[in-house]
């Protein structure tokens, strides 16, 4: 008997993460065929839980900017819950405070773009993968992408998290009083390698925060 599972390297769509993948087969016409399909659909529904329930919020269409900011904060916190077991408690609390501040109606400009869900998910995945001990400052790009920034003295690193696990990074690094500048777009799993020549510990390790754990 075998229970071997082949690893799918292709990155799935955002909504597929953590969801059971129930594939509906070719549909036959017999009662048995329909019953099997119904059981599979029931299984998919059964695995939905109350917090992510299938009922529909009434009046869910946000109209005012205050409502939209509120909904966005709530959505990003729900996304964080999916990986919260890998974040130190203080890390997570600090992240939530940053989100509250970033999406605060008092400081919000009507022309600002709300944070992009896919970009935020890239940010979470990057943080858990890179495991910086030092928390970044967080901002939003003009297009709603999450921007993480670390500054140590004159040394600056900025990473804009793009959807689908891509990152646009820019750095200025002083070594022996010479400033090196570099920029690039990389998949987030390559961030440690592409930053390695610039000794990124100066940004990531120079703190007392606990790194995310995996």
């Amino acid at each position: 008997m075998s229970s071997a599972l082949e690893i799918q390297r292709k990155r799935p769509a955002l909504e597929k993460f953590s969801a059971p993948l129930v594939t509906v087969p070719s549909i036959g016409i017999s009662r048995e065929s329909q019953s099997t399909v119904q059981k599979l659909l029931d299984l998919r529904m059964h695995m939905v839980t109350p917090a992510y329930s299938q009922t529909v919020p009434i009046g869910a269409d946000s109209t005012t900017i205050e409502e939209r900011l509120f909904d966005k904060r709530a959505a990003l916190k729900m996304k964080t819950a999916a990986v919260a077991m890998h974040l130190d408690g203080e890390w997570r609390n600090s992240l939530f405070r940053q989100l509250d501040s970033l999406l605060d109606v008092q400081s919000w400009d009507q022309s600002d773009q709300l944070a992009d869900d896919a970009s935020f998910f890239t940010f979470l995945r990057m943080i858990i993968f890179v495991r910086p001990a030092r928390r970044p400052g967080i901002g939003l790009g003009y297009n709603g992408n999450v921007v993480a920034a670390w500054t140590t003295g004159r040394n600056r690193l900025t990473i804009e998290c793009l959807p689908r696990d891509q990152a646009r990074w820019v750095l200025a690094r002083f070594i022996d009083d010479d400033c090196e500048r570099a920029a690039g777009i990389s998949p987030i799993h390559r961030i440690p390698e592409v930053l390695a020549p610039y000794a990124p510990e100066i940004w990531f390790s120079n703190g007392t925060d606990k790194a995310p754990t995996v």
Binding site: P12, K16, L21, V83, F121, R125
Partner: peptide, 10 residues
Amino acid sequence: NSAATPSPLI
């Protein structure tokens, strides 16, 4: 229920 699912971790 047990199932395989894409991980939110890289």
